[in-house]
Each structure stands twice: as structure tokens, then as C-alpha cells.
Design a binder for these strands. Structure first.
Lengths: 168, 168
DNA sequence: TGAATATATCTTGATGTCAAGATAAATGGA
DNA sequence: TCCATTTATCTTGACATCAAGATATATTCA
């Protein structure tokens, strides 16, 4: 009987006309996300990073040499708006972790690249980040992990296609 | 091969020394949460509510008669900081959805109560909210839903106890 | 009783986010 | 060629959130 269960019990008492079966799963996803973010941020802080800045640096790092992408490509990967990305890049540029140069092939665009300092920082941070993620999932066996991944993958695929069919 | 898989593939190419097995599950949790929040907000907007205000009103509503709690109790249920709760209550009070009166039994505290308008609004909103949640999980069978719930519950319990043992 | 401590809530300042609109450059057709 | 449209990015303004500190009241215990 965790907090989510108590919430469901309250709804069943107050609104017996509602079927709150799915609320449990959805509520647990949200609470898990909070815990995961908090745990992630504890590591990020050691490197003077936020989730926002880690997200950008990691995207550049894993894109491979020359560790450079356009703001638009970064927006696609990170799923934030252009205004948010501008703000993130401003901070990272000020911190000396990225450079922002006009794209010589497209006057509208920019090229965002990791500096040496940015590369070293994100490489160290991601190493600890991955170790941290291992710890977070210690409670589940390899089998359970795979089961969970497959269920989440199926659900996510369905949500993605619902989202897309909505646009039309 | 969804976006999360592509991220893992990039890391495996760039940092073959890291084992990113758990990153998939964690990444999918995050992406799912984004989708779920967006879908929730579409319903909330119809009632001129945000996730923040829905959260508070729903907590009051399901607490049962007299639909009144202290700010501290609301903080416990919603897991936000006191500053955030003050801000939420300010808006809800201005909108006429709650009242905020001094607690006659404890001069430091307040009693936050649903107004009639607040009660009617949250009752209508939660009905549609629950129907919306059913739709979001249509892709999974009852069996899969139960499996997923049980895995999430186990993981969440582990994260909760990790959190608590950290305090010491 | 009084002082020290704890509790409840609010205030302040910094971040981070989005939606909508502005600006500038590129592109596609007439 | 040149105008209309599209694309890439930045700007602005409104919120929401947190951490840290302020304030007022309660409680504890010497």
C-alpha cells in the first residue's frame, strides 16, 4: 500500500462511479520520474550541470566527431522548443562548454560545437551518470528489466502514433 | 527502433566502455511522462486548469468532506515545496476555487477548502480525466497493464527506500 | 515562566519552460 | 528575376518550480 494506492483508495471511496484502474500505472510513472530526475541531478550537480545542460552536451557528445550539431537538430533530439534551446545554448556558451558559430552553408543557421572543456566535462559526467543508472535499477532482475522495457516500448509506440495521428 | 534505441546505439558507438542497458528503460519513462503530461493538459485546459491547479483541487476533492486540508497536508500529497504550494494556492484563491482561512486551532496554519465552484469544476474535470487515462492505456491488455503495474510498483518501492535511507 | 527549538507558511531570487511573434535567410515557382 | 512561402533561430512575456531565508506561532523542558 504505497502513496499511489492510497490515492486510488480515496477516489474509489469518493467517486465509486469512476474506474481508476489506469490511474495507478500513470501515477507511478510520474512518481518514478520525479525520483529519477532527483537522482540524476545529484550527479549533474557534481559537474555544475543541470538536466538541461547535460541533455545538450550529451547529445553533442554521442553524435560523434566533430561533436557539432545545429540548434534544430538539438531541438529534435531533446524535444524542447526553440526558445528553450536558445536559452540553454546561451548558458552553455557563457560557461565555455560549447561554441556557437554561423553556419557558412546556411546563413540562417548556426553550428553548435563542444569545446575541449565541454567534451571532457560531459565524458566524465556521463560515466558517473551511467553508473548511477545501474544503481537505480538494482532492485530489478535482468529478466524484469527486459519485461519492463518491452512493455514501456509498446506503450510509448502507441502514444507516439496517437500523437502523430492527431496532427492531421 | 525508436528514438531511445537510436540514442543507445549512438552511445554504444561512441562509448563502448559504458553499459547503457538501463538507460533505455529510464529514457522511456521520461518520454512517456512527457506524452502523458501533454495528454493530461489537453483535458485540463478545457476547464481552465493547469496540472498544478488540478493537482491541488483533486487532492482536496478526494480527501472527502469537508474537502479541506492544510497547506502542509497538500504539500505531502503533491510532493512540491512550500513556496510552490503558496503560489498554487494564491492562484486558486484568486480564481475563486478555494478559500484560505486561518486555522483557529493553530495560529501558524491555514485551512484550505474547496468552494462550491471549485468542487463542481474538479468533479467534472476528473471525470473526463479518468476517461482520458483509459484511452492512453488502450494499447495494453489488462494482463499487460497488471504486469506493468507490478514492475513499476516494485521499482518505485525500491527508489522510495533508497531515498529514505539517504537522509540518515 | 522563559529561552531554545520546532513547525507552518510566505517571500525572494534564480532557473527553466513554453507559446507566440519577430527577424533574417533560403527556396520555389510564375 | 522576384515575390511568396518556408525555414532557422532569437526575443518576449507569462508561469511554475525550487532553495534559502524570513516571520510568526507552538511546544518543550530546564
Amino acid at each position: 500500500m504505497d502513496k499511489v494506492d492510497r490515492i486510488l483508495a480515496q477516489w474509489r471511496r469518493e467517486r465509486p462511479d469512476l474506474d481508476v484502474t489506469q490511474m495507478g500505472v500513470i501515477g507511478r510513472i510520474g512518481r518514478l520520474r520525479s525520483h529519477l530526475s532527483a537522482a540524476h541531478e545529484r550527479v549533474f550537480k557534481k559537474y555544475d550541470l543541470s538536466l538541461a545542460s547535460f541533455d545538450v552536451l550529451a547529445t553533442l557528445r554521442r553524435s560523434g566527431p566533430p561533436y557539432a550539431l545545429s540548434p534544430s537538430e538539438l531541438i529534435d533530439w531533446t524535444m524542447v522548443t526553440s526558445g528553450t534551446m536558445t536559452n540553454r545554448l546561451d548558458r552553455l556558451e557563457k560557461a565555455g562548454l560549447i561554441t556557437r558559430q554561423r553556419n557558412p552553408e546556411d546563413g540562417r543557421g548556426f553550428v553548435i560545437a563542444l569545446t575541449d572543456k565541454g567534451f571532457e566535462l560531459i565524458d566524465a559526467a556521463v560515466t558517473e551518470h551511467v553508473a548511477n543508472q545501474h544503481q537505480m535499477l538494482e532492485a530489478l532482475s535482468a529478466e524484469e528489466l527486459e519485461q519492463l522495457d518491452s512493455l514501456l516500448r509498446k506503450w510509448l509506440a502507441a502514444m507516439n502514433s496517437a500523437e502523430n495521428s492527431e496532427d492531421s
